[in-house]
Simulated assay, not measured.
Amino acid sequence: IHDREAHADVLRILAEEGAPERTVFHCYSGDAEMAAVCAAAGYYMSFAGNVTFKNAQPLRDALTVAPLELVLVETDAPFLTPAPYRGRPNAPYLIPVTLRAMAEVRGIGEDAMAEAVSGNTARAFGY
């Protein structure tokens, strides 16, 4: 699900209509409150390079609330290039920059974050 500035509507529709068996919020952009709702429902939350932006504290707060087993790192976010590369086109080679920032926010090592995201990706997408 790509939800942009429609958090309440998306969550309401998922609750009313029923969510897919595996639900992934692509380029997660909600706050901590929404992350708690997503977590309770078992939705995956995929964080992109914008988690590194100075003005993205609500997004980092959401990352701290999201259970590690529901966290993914975004691989398809051409306009959400992580700092300090912001302004350049995003590409998969920058995923480690985002992952490092995510690990720092969570207070865990990069290897632990990478292992968690790898396992979550396999579960979410059947790899």
Rank of each mutant, 00 (worst) to 15 (best):
R22V: 13
S46P: 01
R4A: 14
A114Y: 04
S29E: 08
M113T: 12
M113E: 12
V24K: 04
D76Q: 03
R4L: 12
R123Q: 03
V71L: 04
D61G: 02
V37P: 03
A6L: 08
E69N: 13
G49A: 10
K54Q: 05
A36F: 03
S29R: 02
A66Y: 08
M45L: 13
Y28H: 00
Y93D: 15
P20C: 00
F79I: 04
R4W: 10
R88M: 05
S29G: 11
M34C: 02
L72F: 07
Y93C: 14
Y43S: 10
G18A: 07
A101M: 15
D111I: 13
A114L: 09
P67V: 06
A36Y: 02
G18V: 06
F125W: 13
A122K: 14
P58Q: 06
Y93R: 13
L94Q: 00
D31G: 07
C38F: 07
A103I: 08
G30F: 01
L11C: 13
E33P: 06
V73Y: 06
E16R: 04
L14Y: 10
E16I: 09
A103D: 01
L80A: 11
P67Y: 13
A66E: 08
S46Q: 03
T23F: 13
V65I: 15
C27Y: 09
G107N: 07
R123D: 08
R100C: 09
A56N: 01
E115P: 07
